Lab assay of single mutants.
Amino acid sequence: MAAGGDHGSPDSYRSPLASRYASPEMCFVFSDRYKFRTWRQLWLWLAEAEQTLGLPITDEQIQEMKSNLENIDFKMAAEEEKRLRHDVMAHVHTFGHCCPKAAGIIHLGATSCYVGDNTDLIILRNALDLLLPKLARVISRLADFAKERASLPTLGFTHFQPAQLTTVGKRCCLWIQDLCMDLQNLKRVRDDLRFRGVKGTTGTQASFLQLFEGDDHKVEQLDKMVTEKAGFKRAFIITGQTYTRKVDIEVLSVLASLGASVHKICTDIRLLANLKEMEEPFEKQQIGSSAMPYKRNPMRSERCCSLARHLMTLVMDPLQTASVQWFERTLDDSANRRICLAEAFLTADTILNTLQNISEGLVVYPKVIERRIRQELPFMATENIIMAMVKAGGSRQDCHEKIRVLSQQAASVVKQEGGDNDLIERIQVDAYFSPIHSQLDHLLDPSSFTGRASQQVQRFLEEEVYPLLKPYESVMKVKAELCL
């Protein structure tokens, strides 16, 4: 049975990233139509530049190519590739079939990587351009969430054990800070992308030097003109047959890092959902379990974690691919890159769409948070109580021993009897502590235990987050809708 299948058929496997999760716009960027249309555009740009620099290419040939950029006979191309065992030459023939007058000058002087690699770089750039505003929107939604809850005390956790208090907004800023680093890295790697350009079979530009009869300047002009037509500021000066596969490492490393950030955020949300302090959106008709109707599973956060793990592992592909590119190139890269580049971007696209949807509907339960604080705060307040007693004339050592005994009794009630923490009640009825009984409410005010959390939130948002989001103001209103 021949390899390949009808990918629109229910009898043929289709990647869930495309069929179930990723956005239509990201799927289109990695589609065959987008790819092969870009090949034709690159052939047109090459012909236009070659004509401008004096090669015998007519206006009629150029116009014929322009008129057929979208006229792609995919069936013919597939048949040609089956016959020739070469995808680029299959599309040269297919393009030439609908451009008979231009057929002889299509791909003039070029090698397969002229269309293959340059198209990949265009796709990487455009895919990054799709991700950047999506990530900015996630940051914006979380920034709104953090600002609104900047002063809401909550129990902090280290080692997932109760620690000092923080605020809900401050905790959210930990998430935002990681995503801001990801946004900066995505922008950097996007701006650092260079075009492969017009380089020939081993990167020496020998074929173009021959076409222009040894004119170095025209060869350099050709490279520059096509690079500018493709919208790049610069091209690699040095290439082998391909652009260095280190570029793929750079791009997928940034995406993998984004995956790590999203995994951490969504894990926190899942843990908070278990504590009943916070939940992701839950639709009115949504079913959490087929057997347990009360369940409210954090399905979206779980999906993000599941896909983020996949995204983090994909960076190993370009690392290994770059390491086995012998001399000017081997074909070890080809099949692998067809999979890992598309999957990385479709996965990143999915987790950003999902995280935006989550961040637009996060639900906080202040009463649950308050109750958990009441359970733990008495123990945390013991040092403040000791200091207040010393100020009232008591002995630190005597007070410490009193607190120690009462704390152990209260802990026994919590752990052995399943009761509430009654340390404060014990202190309130103990005559030894009568000098500070009137101060206990103040000493137990949760806001006095959150330090500068709310001020940190305000400063972080104003100095770091809002300036970073400013270039994306025009796209901030787009909502994230999930079908599944």
Rank of each mutant, 00 (worst) to 15 (best):
A2D: 11
A3I: 15
G5W: 13
D6L: 06
D6H: 00
S9Y: 15
P10Y: 15
S15G: 15
A18G: 15
Y21R: 00
A22P: 12
S23C: 07
P24E: 09
P24V: 11
E25Q: 13
C27F: 10
V29E: 00
F30L: 14
K35E: 07
W39S: 09
W43I: 01
W43Y: 05
L44M: 08
E48R: 05
E48V: 06
A49H: 02
A49I: 05
E50K: 05
Q51Y: 07
T52D: 11
T52L: 09
L53W: 01
G54Y: 01
P56G: 09
D59F: 09
E60D: 08
Q61R: 06
I62L: 13
L69G: 12
L69S: 08
E70W: 10
N71S: 09
N71C: 08
I72V: 09
A77G: 12
R83H: 11
R83E: 11
L84S: 06
L84W: 13
L84I: 06
H86N: 00
V92M: 09
H93K: 14
H97Q: 12
P100W: 07
A103N: 15
G104E: 06
H107I: 04
L108Y: 10
L108H: 09
A110I: 05
V115E: 06
G116Y: 01
D117L: 01
D120F: 12
L121C: 13
L124M: 13
R125E: 03
N126G: 13
N126F: 12
A127V: 06
L128A: 13
L128S: 10
L128D: 04
L131G: 07
L131I: 08
L132E: 11
L135V: 12
A136V: 15
V138W: 12
S140D: 09
F145M: 06
E148R: 10
A150P: 06
L155Q: 03
T158C: 03
A163R: 00
K170R: 14
L174A: 12
I176A: 08
I176D: 05
Q177A: 10
Q177M: 13
M181W: 09
L186W: 11
L186K: 03
R188F: 11
R190V: 11
L193K: 02
R194L: 11
F195K: 01
G203N: 01
Q205L: 05
F212D: 03
D215Y: 15
H217I: 11
H217M: 10
V219P: 04
Q221G: 12
L222P: 01
M225Y: 09
M225N: 07
M225R: 11
M225I: 08
A230L: 03
A230T: 05
F232P: 01
K233C: 12
A235L: 13
F236E: 06
F236W: 13
I237N: 08
Y243G: 12
Y243F: 15
K246C: 03
E250G: 13
E250P: 13
V251E: 03
L252W: 03
S257N: 08
L258E: 03
L258G: 03
A260I: 00
S261D: 05
I265S: 12
I265W: 13
D268I: 00
D268P: 01
L272P: 04
L275M: 12
K276V: 05
M278F: 09
M278S: 04
M278G: 04
E283P: 01
E283V: 10
E283R: 06
K284Q: 12
Q285N: 13
Q285E: 07
I287D: 02
S289W: 00
A291R: 01
Y294D: 01
Y294I: 01
R296Q: 10
N297E: 01
P298N: 02
R303H: 01
L307G: 14
H310Q: 06
T313C: 10
L314T: 10
V315N: 06
V315W: 08
D317V: 05
D317P: 06
P318Y: 00
S323E: 03
V324R: 03
V324F: 07
D333F: 00
S334W: 01
R337M: 03
R338H: 01
R338P: 01
L341M: 11
T347N: 14
N353F: 05
I358L: 14
S359L: 12
L362V: 08
L362H: 05
V363G: 05
V364T: 05
K367P: 06
I369W: 02
R371W: 02
I373P: 02
R374N: 05
E383P: 02
I385F: 08
I385K: 03
I385A: 04
M389C: 08
G394E: 10
G394Q: 06
Q397H: 08
V405L: 14
V405A: 14
V405Y: 11
L406F: 14
A410W: 05
V413N: 12
D420S: 05
D422N: 09
I424P: 10
I427Q: 04
A431F: 06
Y432A: 13
P435V: 07
L440V: 12
L444T: 06
S447N: 14
F449W: 05
F449D: 04
A453I: 03
Q455G: 10
Q456C: 08
V457D: 03
E463G: 13
E463K: 09
L469S: 07
L469R: 04
K470G: 12
K470D: 15
S474Q: 15
V475H: 13
K477Q: 14
L482P: 14
